[in-house]
Simulated scan of single mutants.
Amino acid sequence: MKKTFSGFPLVLAAMTLGVGLHASTSLADTLDDVKARGTLVVAIDPTFAPYEYTDDSGAITGYTPAIMAQVAKTLGVKVEYQKMAFSGIIPALISGSVDAEGSSLNVTAERAGKVLFVAPFGKSVNAVMTRADDKRIDPTGLKVESLAGLSAAVKTTSAPEQLVKQFNVELKSKGLAPIKIVGVDSVDQTLSALMTRRADFILDDITVLGSLLKQHPDNLRQVGELGTSQWISWATRKDDTRLNKVISDQIIAMQSSGELQKLQQQYLGVTFDLPSHDFIPAK
């Protein structure tokens, strides 16, 4: 009996090790699994137009699905999207429920501690837009001081509104007039405030402004970016370096060929200069 029980832990340990190795191998070999299966299972929250959204027919479309379609073509597989709430995407990825995630993520040091980002395909930064006939703001080396005493149309409780409030603290410390905040409820209302001259400029993300400029190219003028910027990317599990490289290589190749810029202009109304490495911010 003593011999039987003394051996049992060894058998159990071996079985546990085997299970652990199988799970590890399964996660590490996602690229092989994808190719063998013929599908790339991707988690997505398609509510972030124009990056990823659902059209009137219910199909997932936008800038990022167009890129993902090229990734799948390179792999010789089909994309199978799994819709879920944005908050559940990274947990689903880490647990192995999906092969990759296809929702646009701001690249942060905190997220980089949990997942492996692919080469960025987008950029998030606020910018200033004026009426085309308003030349008061110099686009060359735009600074906060250039906005002193002017009025800004921003969405109420938004990040741009908070940024204007920070600008006003800076302007006050320099003895300059603050920016008047014209708070509204939607992007369309910011445009209305600008064109009816209730505001001198709009402050919002460059993709939002790019969409407005695309709709009204003769009436609007983007004069520069202000505030900190973040790269936008997808992620894989940290073990999936091979799958990550395939996706990253496709994004980099599309950028080199100019295809990525065409998609940016088509969907976002703006183009980006994107890094291929060293894009993770420091903690």
Rank of each mutant, 00 (worst) to 15 (best):
M84G: 08
L31C: 05
N219R: 13
D33G: 03
S26R: 00
L263K: 03
I232N: 02
L194A: 02
G102S: 11
A59C: 02
E259F: 05
V107T: 05
A199P: 07
R242K: 15
P217A: 10
R37M: 04
T190P: 04
G269D: 05
T130M: 15
T140M: 05
T16G: 12
G149M: 08
K35G: 08
A36W: 05
D29Q: 11
L213I: 02
I202S: 00
R37N: 12
K135G: 00
L93T: 01
R197Y: 08
K143Y: 02
E259W: 03
H277A: 15
I94T: 10
L12D: 06
F8T: 14
E80F: 03
S151C: 12
S104N: 09
V182S: 01
D33R: 01
T61W: 07
T156G: 04
R198F: 03
L191T: 03
G210D: 04
S248Q: 09
G122S: 14
A132W: 08
E145F: 06
T241A: 14
W231S: 00
A43W: 04
Q166Y: 03
L213E: 10
L220H: 03
V11E: 03
K172G: 09
L10P: 00
A253H: 06
A92P: 03
K73A: 14
S229R: 02
D133V: 13
Y267N: 09
L268C: 08
V41P: 00
S26K: 00
I89G: 00
I232V: 13
T271Q: 12
S257V: 04
Y267E: 04
Q250L: 05
